[in-house]
């Protein structure tokens, strides 16, 4: 997998060289962009904090374990490991919340191995469907979105099952 670890560095080098060729000041542009990280984190912090407090209670109360235990027969059948069920359930609703859950999985299981990789693929290959429906279509008056929302949920679910399978192979 050496090839994939050089993708990002190579892309970054090409980008900086290309920007220098196009006479864009890469240093200034980079600094301007990097500064946007702070407001971005500020804007998601409230949700990270709220979701993490909620999940903490959810776990400590044993409710999370109970819920996972209840749906384990179904997820087992589909090949979804119980450790990542909370991520699968939360992802369509909240991007920052599921990011919080993903980092929780890393701190518990590390960043390598089947469970963390599987969680990474699920997080990276899916989108917060309900957020998209709210934001993209904020200025659309007639919202007949039930059909596409269901289709999105179904296809994301299919790719989740696929992700759990493919992480066993590559």
């Amino acid at each position: 997998m050496k090839f994939f670890s050089i993708i990002i560095p190579v892309l970054l080098i090409s980008l900086v060289i290309y920007s220098a060729i196009k006479k864009i000041k890469p240093y200034d542009a980079f600094a301007e962009g990097a500064g946007k990280a702070i407001p971005l984190v500020f804007s998601i912090f409230p949700y990270l904090a709220t979701i993490l407090m909620m999940t903490e209670l959810f776990e400590k109360s044993g409710l999370s374990a109970k819920l996972i235990e209840t749906i384990t027969p179904v997820t087992d059948f589909l090949g979804i490991p119980p450790e990542i069920t909370p991520l699968v359930l939360l992802k369509p609703f909240s991007g920052s919340g599921s990011l919080a859950v993903l980092s929780g999985i890393y701190s518990e299981y590390g960043a390598d191995g089947y469970i963390p990789r599987c969680a990474s693929v699920i997080f990276g290959s899916s989108e917060t469907i309900f957020y998209v429906s709210a934001v993209y279509f904020a200025r659309v008056k007639e919202k007949r979105l039930i059909k596409p929302i269901i289709i999105s949920l179904v296809s994301t679910f299919i790719s989740t099952i696929f992700a759990c399978f493919i992480c066993r192979v590559i």
């Binding site: 997998m1 994939f4 670890s5 993708i7 990002i8 990011l99 993903l102 980092s103 890393y106 701190s107 590390g110 960043a111 390598d112 963390p116 990789r117 990474s120 693929v121 699920i122 990276g124 290959s125 899916s126 296809s155 994301t156 299919i158 790719s159 989740t160 696929f162 992700a163 493919i166 992480c167 590559i170």
Partner: peptide, 24 residues
């Protein structure tokens, strides 16, 4: 994020993610 959690190979999820997102 995987790199921050000291993954040995943070980008090894590149291909599975690409396949999975293309599938959905």
């Amino acid at each position: 994020l995987r790199a921050q959690f000291a993954s040995a190979s943070p980008s090894d999820i590149f291909l599975p993610t690409l396949f999975s997102t293309a599938l959905s």
